[in-house]
Simulated scan of single mutants.
Amino acid sequence: MELQNNKSIAEIRAALRNRIIDLEPADFEDLALKIFRYQAEYNPVYHQYINYLNIDPRRIKSLTKIPFLPIQFFKNHTIRTGEPPVASAVFQSSGTTGQNTSHHHLFDAPLYKAVSHRIFQQNYSDLNRFHILALLPSYLERNNSSLVYMMQHFIDESGSEFSGFYLNNIDEMLQRLKYLSQNPDGRRILLLGVTFALLDLAESSYDLSFLKDMNQLTVMDTGGMKGRRQELLREEVHDILTENFSVKNIHSEYGMTELLSQGYSHGSGLFAPGYTMRILLRDINDPFSVFDHNINKTKTGGVNVIDLANLDSCSFIETQDLGRFGDKPGTFYIMGRFDNSDIRGCNLMVL
Rank of each mutant, 00 (worst) to 15 (best):
N5Q: 15
N5G: 10
K7Y: 11
S8W: 07
A10M: 12
E11D: 12
I12P: 00
R13A: 11
L23H: 07
F28C: 04
F28V: 04
E29Q: 14
L31D: 04
K34I: 04
I35Y: 04
Y38W: 11
Y38S: 00
Y46E: 01
Q48G: 08
N51S: 12
N51K: 15
L53D: 06
R59M: 13
I60Q: 06
I60Y: 01
L63C: 07
T64G: 03
T64Y: 04
K65R: 13
F73L: 10
F73D: 01
F74C: 00
N76V: 15
N76W: 10
R80Y: 15
G82K: 01
E83M: 13
P84S: 08
A87W: 05
S88N: 10
A89E: 13
F91V: 00
G98D: 07
S102F: 02
H104T: 12
H104Q: 11
H105L: 08
L106H: 02
L106P: 00
F107M: 06
D108H: 07
K113G: 08
R118G: 01
R118Q: 14
N123T: 10
S125L: 12
S125G: 15
N128H: 12
H131A: 00
L133P: 04
L136N: 01
Y139K: 09
N144C: 12
Q152A: 12
H153P: 05
D156Q: 15
D156W: 10
N168A: 14
N168Y: 11
I170A: 07
E172L: 14
R176F: 00
K178Q: 14
F196A: 02
L199P: 01
Y206Q: 10
D207R: 08
N215L: 11
Q216K: 09
Q216H: 13
T218I: 14
V219H: 00
D221F: 04
G223L: 05
M225W: 05
M225L: 11
L233N: 13
R234M: 09
E236M: 09
L241R: 00
F245N: 02
F245H: 02
S246L: 06
N249C: 10
I250A: 02
E253V: 10
E253A: 09
Y254A: 06
T257C: 09
E258R: 03
S261V: 04
G269I: 02
L270I: 14
G274I: 03
Y275V: 03
Y275H: 13
M277S: 09
R282V: 00
R282H: 12
D283Q: 07
D283S: 09
D286T: 08
F288V: 11
V290E: 02
N294R: 15
G302T: 01
D307I: 06
L308V: 06
L308H: 02
N310S: 08
C314V: 14
Q320I: 08
L322T: 03
G326C: 07
D339W: 02
N347E: 13
V350K: 14
L351G: 12
